[in-house]
């Protein structure tokens, strides 16, 4: 095991996959000569050259469509969209071309592109740089959506996504690129479906994904230490398709559920998890499931307002305490 930061893990996955297959390319704004806003492609331009490490114009729909077209003929593009807020501009090509082409061609054509993009509220970036968009992507049939919560996943997911024959959207987080964690020394391919039990527990399940997994882990420690509540933490690293079996298995064990999401609650991950629980194991519940979500408003520039809009570990603790009357 080696300890890497998330950006280093993502960079290593790029490097290995580009060495492994000459048709793997990466493209995006400032990813080449400048090395990438989050350094995820740092040094690759010098190693692989401008034909394979492509600095694109600021034309999100155009270069995403270009990557999709290249993937039709066997190229495996890793497209970095600097911020999920800008991914809206590429939504036409992602939604109408990448996600639909296999179906509408009756299986003749597929678009094996990887789109990586950074979401989440960081520090006072304002309404147009703080969106959490995973809920939008996970509503698109034909597109896989994964979201890493640590460097090991960030590394292994990108490697699997490059080789997978489906289009894959990897939802990263602005605040997590410098997060450290252990990554296997040898090559590692993380699954693109499923979930991970991060902490075993018997009293309540805390579902999280990406950054909210960390709130859940923190909250579980506080709940155990201060309130004697043993929470199970489940990392929903795959948002589409969601791990129905994994969700049900944990609910059958704990009978209580809190879902933590950084996004607004409306048509979100929490809503979808609740729907699955209702459909699959409603009578296993001892309490009504609860969501810990953002306030349904654009994110403010003002630091106090921004903090108040986005949930944290304390909010997860509060939700569980309320559920248990403690």
């Amino acid at each position: 095991m080696v300890e890497l930061m998330c950006w280093e893990a993502i960079r290593r996955a790029h490097d290995e996959e580009m060495t492994n297959d000459p048709l793997v390319i990466c493209m995006g704004e400032d990813i080449g000569v400048a090395g990438g806003t989050y350094k995820a492609t740092n040094g690759l331009y010098d190693k692989y050259g401008p034909e394979r490490v492509i600095d694109t114009p600021i034309s999100e729909n155009g270069y995403t469509g270009l990557g999709i077209g290249a993937s039709f003929l066997g190229v495996r593009p890793i497209i970095e969209i600097m911020s999920v807020n800008f991914a809206w501009l590429a939504m036409d090509q992602l939604f109408n071309s990448a996600a639909k082409v296999r179906y509408m061609s009756g299986g003749q054509l597929t678009a094996p592109v990887v789109v990586r993009s950074a979401g989440g509220a960081a520090h006072q970036l304002g309404a147009q740089h703080s969106a959490r968009m995973e809920k939008v992507f996970m509503g698109i049939a034909g597109l896989r959506v994964v979201t890493p919560s640590n460097p090991r996943q960030a590394y292994g997911m990108l490697k699997s996504a490059v080789r997978c024959n489906d289009p894959v959207f990897i939802n990263e987080h602005e605040l997590m690129y410098n997060m450290k964690g252990e990554v296997p020394d040898e090559e590692y391919f993380h699954p693109l479906e499923g979930s991970e039990v991060v902490r075993e527990g018997r009293d309540v399940t805390l579902f999280g994904y990406n950054i909210s997994v960390h709130w859940c882990v923190q909250a579980a420690a506080t709940l155990s230490k201060q309130f004697g509540i043993e929470a199970e933490v489940v990392d929903l690293f795959a948002l589409s398709p969601l791990d129905r079996a994994g969700i049900v298995a944990s609910v059958r064990k704990t009978h209580r559920v809190v879902i933590a999401e950084e996004a607004e609650p409306v048509v979100g991950v929490g809503a979808e998890v609740m729907a699955i629980i209702n459909e699959e194991c409603f009578f296993e519940l001892d309490a009504a499931p609860v969501r810990v979500s953002a306030v349904n408003a654009p994110v403010a520039y003002n630091h106090t307002l921004e903090k108040a809009a986005i949930p944290n570990a304390g909010d997860v603790v509060a939700a569980v305490r309320k559920m248990f009357g403690k």
Binding site: L23, I25, E51, R52, N61, G62, Y63, T64, G65, L66, G67, I68, G69, A70, S71, F72, L73, G74, V75, D92, Q93, N96, S97, V101, M104, S105, L109
Partner: peptide
């Protein structure tokens, strides 16, 4: 393929050309 979003094939065509060139 035929695509129904007006203008959708422009970048797809450029992308296929990129693949051919590579």
């Amino acid at each position: 393929g035929g695509y129904a979003l007006v203008g959708g094939p422009f970048p797809l065509a450029a992308g296929m050309a990129k693949a051919i060139k590579m």
